[in-house]
Design a protein around this nucleic acid. Sequence first.
DNA 1: TTGTACGCGTTATCAC
DNA 2: GTGATAACGCGTACAA
Lengths: 336, 336
Amino acid sequence: MTTIRDIARHAGVSVTTVSRTLREPEAVRRDKRDRVHAAIAELSYVPNAIAQQLRRPRAEAIIVIVPAIDNPFFSGIIQSIENVAHELGYRVLIGETQGRQERLDHYADMVTARLADGLILLGSLLPTPVRSAFEAGRPVPIPLVLACERYDGLDCPSVTIDNAAAAEAAADHLIRTGRQRIATITGPLANPLAMDRLAGFRAALQRAGMTADEEAVVEGNFSVESGHEGMQRLLSGPRRPDAVFCANDEMAIGAIRAAVTAGLSVPGELAVVGFDDLRFGAFATPPLTTIRQPTAGIGETAMRMMDAELHQRGLSERQVVLPHELVVRGSSVVAA
Amino acid sequence: MTTIRDIARHAGVSVTTVSRTLREPEAVRRDKRDRVHAAIAELSYVPNAIAQQLRRPRAEAIIVIVPAIDNPFFSGIIQSIENVAHELGYRVLIGETQGRQERLDHYADMVTARLADGLILLGSLLPTPVRSAFEAGRPVPIPLVLACERYDGLDCPSVTIDNAAAAEAAADHLIRTGRQRIATITGPLANPLAMDRLAGFRAALQRAGMTADEEAVVEGNFSVESGHEGMQRLLSGPRRPDAVFCANDEMAIGAIRAAVTAGLSVPGELAVVGFDDLRFGAFATPPLTTIRQPTAGIGETAMRMMDAELHQRGLSERQVVLPHELVVRGSSVVAA
DNA sequence: TTGTACGCGTTATCAC
DNA sequence: GTGATAACGCGTACAA
């Protein structure tokens, strides 16, 4: 391994000069600079980042935690995080937890161990040290930004949408288009975000003077498969629904499949509305009506908040709520 | 920041004892060990991983490079890489390139800079240092494993499927089920893998005494949108195809949408076959016939090869080819 | 403008 | 068993 000392020796200068040549070239005389560069090329020297970081305050890297990398909803967010991060001079590393606490904790360890500067959480799991600090009323021990999820009482920057209002808008759409028996397939109810969507759904029905009977609410887990099963359950019930609101697009796609397999026409006999506006949704058959989340905005905001956090700059707003949008396509309304 | 010296002072022992307590506890007397642990807990000490790695030969981390994180095909591979990596004691960091050479190079730099031990490439781009070494006939400069892609002449471990044979199987299926005018939507033809699939497709037609006229071959870029556009192009041509082989499932989903929008029945008037066996494919309407890739096997093999590479263990096989499988669903055959 | 020398936090060597 | 101390590779006062 060639080190800065090898370069110094080879170029006939001191290590300081080599270091400075790399960091503030103007402060080094031309000829020495050239000799240094020549030596670097000849010995193919690459500064050891580990050693550099021992001297630097920050790692210039952040870790984005995603529960499941195969959930396309997170992709858009990650991509916008990456764009902003690059611009701000950070590397982005993605860590997948698959819902496993120990994996998340492992990534959190990378922050305490200074291999990365902070964590952006896209999921609902909190690292153990953060959770215990929270429960003990102590401040959050590592730089943390929550995207998508909210935790009441946790004092850390977050960016979300108003999930309850969005779900309400989805249900309203079904009500306004004349649906009578509206069911829902929820996310895992341990999840605050899933609860919010269910609450919004219920609020809309109630406001319209309808009640959501218990058989019309089935719990899913955000996977296509669970949407498929959930729909089968709903179809085998006593009162077949004529509309279903799914808490994400994946489940909506599974629901459509179950309905079509059962011989129902979508949207004629069953209207389906999803949530997220996945790329695939627009190309489903029929194209999926859904709630569009501002993925680019979520990612960008989260990354800028992280940067501010790391620079101890006060944030004007620590809990940002971004606007959502109902996108009506063929799965909920019969073509004119 | 609390360091090992703080612990030593607080526990009234030397730094050596603290270090040893953490690394080989049996070699330290009980009472001192307890004092050290107490001090660690009290001062909430976490060893600085940066400093540790300055002394260690390896970072125990590998980086998986994926072209686009929103391509679900890679998810399965990544997940199996992660499972094996964990078991072998590595951290996995995921880097997305979005096809940008500079981003890939940035991640490759992390390896030369010892922040990670090696790179597993899921895409077709090579890091600049690797490419120039290749062109100059020098050995690959960093630990590298290719998953999915192949590079003729590049001496590095790889795991792939036989893309040509798989495409041939897909086309054969269409031929055997009586299709007459079989078209294809390819991947970007700069891509070896896309070329292999096209070659296999052509071989199958030729063997059956059919020719693939040039209007029946359109180039896509693996995105749903390009599948949609490609299908529109094929439908507006002089001889409407009665079957199309798409070089991946995403494009197949886009193709189905275009066909259905144009009023064609799938599979009645148009049979569609994809490639990859995405999770969503089975839930498409109609469910997608496709080539299943052994994603778990690809990921596991790639990670084990990387581990062998890092330990300088010779690999029995450096170019592994895994089996594929044709999965027939409703998009290519009319239900009995 | 350049070089010497120290410190960053840890682990390994060696003497006690 | 334990403790000084020398690396690891780099950045930077401070001195020249």
